[in-house]
Design a binder for these strands. Structure first.
Length: 281
DNA sequence: CACGTCACCTGCGTGC
DNA sequence: TGCACGCAGGTGACGT
């Protein structure tokens, strides 16, 4: 489900107390229940339960699409993949609460004061880790697109070394962390690049614009609290700003040509055939 | 090594 | 209405 902006929105809601969200900062863990065993990557459920006890949440942040919860001793890490979501529940009555499980709940973390952090994940692709070193999980990720260390020159130099299609590269988390199908399509539209364009055919000028477009769509996505599509609604509004994603057959908002959809690496790719020309040398 | 394809899952919309 | 099919915000394993 979530890409960088959606994950960032969730991280902020876990970290910062909002009008309708509950921060877990400073809370002390008491117990964990894993309802779908594959949701837990490492360690074993017994080990997890033993190790998280009495650990305090010191911070919550993000690396790419991974949510990293800094505990007193270890790091509790979540990846929501396609359909995962995290919610924090207010403590109600202990006896009632321990029984309440919603459809698709896969893991429940209970704090000493009764609040609960719950992974809900219809498609069961989401994963959880408890590790001493977060690099064990996120170590191979590419640069953070919103960090200053991500520069147009570096992007150009890396593109030059790749001959895969630009759309596939943007989805490759080892190349760049955090982009998913929505934001890749939207960034390529802003950059006027055809999704099938080989990476090494992209010019310096185009790379500069692509760099700016990536930052623009991600920043706008975060500002709108991410996108809410399908039957899972999380309150974000970026879906109202889509130029091409899921707009197949609808007029381009710039030139009114009809948006096309092709499949690249098993993923639907949406683009304007006129604004996003395929360059042949 | 680099790149493409498949497996892992459930639910929803569409068309017959 | 029922059912088959295609589609969905991702990624690791495997093949060429």
């Amino acid at each position: 489900m979530p890409e960088l902006p959606e994950v960032e929105t969730i991280v902020r809601s876990l970290r910062d107390r909002g009008s309708n969200s509950l921060s877990i900062l400073g809370h002390t863990l008491k117990d964990a229940q894993i309802l779908w065993s594959h949701s837990l990557s490492i360690p074993s459920e017994a080990e997890l339960q033993k190790r998280i006890q009495k650990q305090i949440v010191n911070d919550v942040n993000r690396r790419g699409k991974y949510i990293i919860i800094h505990l007193s001793e270890n790091y509790l890490i979540f990846h929501l993949r396609m359909s995962g979501d995290l919610r924090v529940e207010q403590a109600i009555n202990d006896h009632i609460q321990s029984i309440i499980v919603q459809k698709h709940d896969r893991a429940i973390f209970t704090f000493t004061d009764g609040i609960r952090l719950i992974l809900n994940d219809p498609r069961k692709f989401g994963r959880i880790w408890l590790v001493d070193d977060p690099n064990l999980v996120t170590g191979k990720l590419g640069p953070e697109p919103l960090d200053e260390s991500f520069t147009p020159i570096d992007l150009y130099n890396k593109l030059k070394k790749k001959q895969s299609r630009i759309k596939s590269l943007l989805l490759d988390q080892h190349f760049l962390a955090g982009m998913g199908n929505i934001y890749s399509d939207e960034a390529l539209f802003l950059a006027k690049l055809h999704p099938l364009q080989p990476a090494n055919s992209i010019t310096m000028d185009q790379a500069i614009i692509l760099h700016r477009s990536i930052i623009q769509v991600l920043t706008e996505g975060i500002r709108k609290n991410g996108a809410s599509i399908d039957w899972v609604y999380r309150g974000g509004g970026f879906q109202h700003s889509f130029n091409v994603y899921q707009r197949t057959g609808k007029p381009c908002l710039i030139c009114e040509s009809l948006i096309e959809r092709i499949v690249i690496g098993q993923r639907g790719s949406h683009y304007c055939p006129v604004c996003q020309k395929f360059y042949q040398e």
